[in-house]
């Protein structure tokens, strides 16, 4: 049975996450107040009639005080209303939900690619630290981490689509044709994953080395357990914890990075939706899109945080027994 301290831990994490989301909504709504001039005039253009401007202000809720606007936003949110597109009146929620699967597919496939490539690289580097492979991986990971994803996107597009013509240049593929969609996903995924492969490889390598220097590993070596078994069975699990926490944050950063991949590869998605809305000053769509990204970001961080305390037996024991920190 979980003790009260676990529930307190869960509640405090949830409360922090909720506060962050609520605060970001207030920030987003407050930002609209800073739009130079009257937002409705900016959206509708200088030739709009005063009636149209007043009607739009009332529709966006700009004629009310900020706090009232925030409460109204949350009130509408619970009934699934994120506002309307100012140009064609379409509900923002349906625009966001329409775009989300494309972005989610991109972010998830990038994260999976990064894990599938990053973990073995970390294992090899930690098995022979200071060796040739370790040095090569160290060099490549710093290179990939520091290269902006939009530069990688443009380079991949230039080499594989424009010059070699191996991959399609633009779009997300024919809807309904899964093979075509996956084919269109290859380059954007590679562009987004590149930095994270390096990041996971480095992070996991250093925590593996830390675990490998502990005394229980020395005991295992003294008993003659093979290095491969020590690495896979005894070192990987505790070493993977810091990486899990980073992955939660990383998923949110991937959603941000998706803006570039989607614009460059001309893919529909949350990033390109927000980008187009910014260019056309369609503020309700910007607000709605950014809100959903923040929500996902906070949520993945929360999940990573909680799963870390559930995977780590030391942390779990501390929470269940209600004792202080073990260390």
């Amino acid at each position: 049975m979980r003790s009260a301290s676990f529930q307190i831990h869960l509640a405090s994490k949830l409360a922090t996450a909720l506060l962050a989301v609520a605060g970001s909504v207030v920030l987003l709504l407050a930002l609209t107040r800073f739009i130079p001039g009257d937002p409705a005039t900016v959206i509708l253009g200088s030739r709009a009639t005063p009636e149209a401007v007043a009607a739009l202000n009332a529709r966006i809720g700009l004629d009310k005080p900020l706090i009232e606007q925030a409460f109204a936003f949350f009130g509408r949110l619970f009934s699934g209303d994120l506002g309307e597109d100012v140009f064609n009146g379409r509900p923002v929620l349906s625009l966001v939900l329409g775009a989300l699967p494309n972005t989610a597919a991109l972010a998830i496939s990038a994260m999976l690619t990064a894990i599938v490539l990053g973990v073995p690289l970390a294992l090899v580097s930690a098995r022979w630290p200071g060796g040739k492979i370790d040095r090569l991986v160290a060099f490549l990971s710093v290179g990939f981490i520091s290269t902006p994803s939009f530069v990688v996107s443009v380079f991949l597009l230039m080499v594989f689509s424009v010059t070699l013509r191996w991959f399609p240049v633009l779009g997300a593929g024919e809807s309904g044709d899964l093979g075509d969609q996956l084919w269109h996903l290859v380059l954007p995924t590679a562009a987004l994953a590149a930095g994270w492969v390096g990041y996971i490889a480095r992070l996991l390598r250093s925590s593996l080395l830390e675990v490998l220097s502990e005394s229980h590993i020395r005991t295992l070596r003294a008993y003659g357990v093979s290095e491969a078994k020590i690495l896979m069975k005894y070192a990987l699990k505790p070493a993977v914890l810091p990486t899990v926490a980073v992955l939660g944050m990383g998923f949110g950063e991937l959603l941000g990075g998706a803006v570039f991949a989607e614009v460059i590869f001309n893919r529909p998605g949350l990033g390109s939706l927000i980008y187009d809305a910014i260019r056309t000053r369609n503020y309700p769509v910007v607000q709605g899109g950014v809100f959903v990204i923040v929500l996902l970001y906070v949520l993945t961080n929360l999940i990573a945080d909680l799963s870390q305390s559930l995977i780590d037996p030391r942390e779990r024991a501390r929470l269940v027994s209600g004792r202080g920190a073990v260390t």
């Binding site: 962050a20 970001s24 987003l28 800073f34 927000i274 000053r281 503020y283 950014v290």
Partner: peptide
């Protein structure tokens, strides 16, 4: 600390985009 938390609850590029969307 609460304000710091709110600002960091946005992925950095998304916050930069949201700010530029408003201020130009």
């Amino acid at each position: 600390v609460g304000i710091f938390d709110v600002v960091t609850s946005f992925p950095s590029i998304i916050l930069a985009l949201a700010l530029v969307a408003v201020f130009g």
